[in-house]
Simulated scan of single mutants.
Amino acid sequence: MSDVFARISEDPLDTSAVDEFVWRAESGAVVAFQGIVRDHDGGRGVVSLDYRAHPEAQRFLQECCDEIAGRTGLRVAAEHRVGSLTIGDLALVAAVAAPHRAEAFAACAELIELIKARVPIWKRQHFSDGVSEWVGL
Rank of each mutant, 00 (worst) to 15 (best):
G35E: 01
A32H: 06
F105D: 00
R7A: 15
P120S: 11
G43K: 08
S27G: 11
G35V: 01
V18E: 03
K123S: 08
L13M: 12
L61F: 08
E67L: 13
L61D: 07
I115A: 00
A106F: 01
L137P: 12
G28Q: 09
L137T: 12
M1A: 15
F105C: 03
A78F: 00
L114G: 11
S84Q: 14
F60A: 15
P120C: 11
R81G: 14
M1Y: 11
A106C: 08
S48W: 02
G83S: 06
T72Q: 08
S27E: 08
G35F: 01
L49K: 09
W122K: 08
E63N: 13
R59M: 13
S48G: 14
V135R: 05
M1H: 12
G130W: 08
R24K: 15
D39C: 05
D89E: 05
H40S: 14
I121R: 02
A91W: 00
F127W: 05
H80F: 07
A91H: 00
C65G: 12
E133I: 04
L85T: 09
S48R: 14
A117M: 09
D3H: 12
I115Y: 01
A91T: 05
F33I: 01
V82K: 03
A29V: 04
K123N: 08
D41V: 08
I121K: 03
D41L: 09
F33D: 00
D89L: 04
F33Q: 02
A17E: 13
A102M: 10
S128F: 10
F60E: 11
G83E: 07
Y51I: 02
A53N: 06
P120K: 09
L92M: 05
T86K: 11
R118C: 02
A107Q: 01
R101G: 09
L49P: 02
P99K: 04
L114K: 12
I115K: 00
P55Q: 10
L74D: 04
A95V: 05
V30F: 13
A57W: 06
R7W: 02
L85N: 10
A102G: 12
I112P: 02
R52W: 03
I68D: 02
E103W: 07
R7M: 14
G45R: 10
D41N: 14
F5P: 04
K116R: 14
E113D: 15
S132E: 13
G43N: 09
V135A: 05
H40G: 05
V76F: 11
D66Q: 15
E67C: 12
G130A: 11
Q58Y: 06
A78R: 02
F105E: 04
E113W: 06
G136D: 00
R52Y: 05
Q125K: 09
S132Y: 07
A77E: 07
E110Y: 02
A57P: 05
E10L: 12
D11E: 15
D66G: 10
A102Y: 07
R124G: 02
D50W: 06
R81F: 07
E56T: 12
A6W: 00
K116S: 01
I112E: 00
E113K: 11
V96M: 11
A91F: 03
C108K: 07
D129R: 04
S84D: 10
Q125N: 13
A32S: 15
A107L: 01
L74E: 07
T72P: 06
G70F: 09
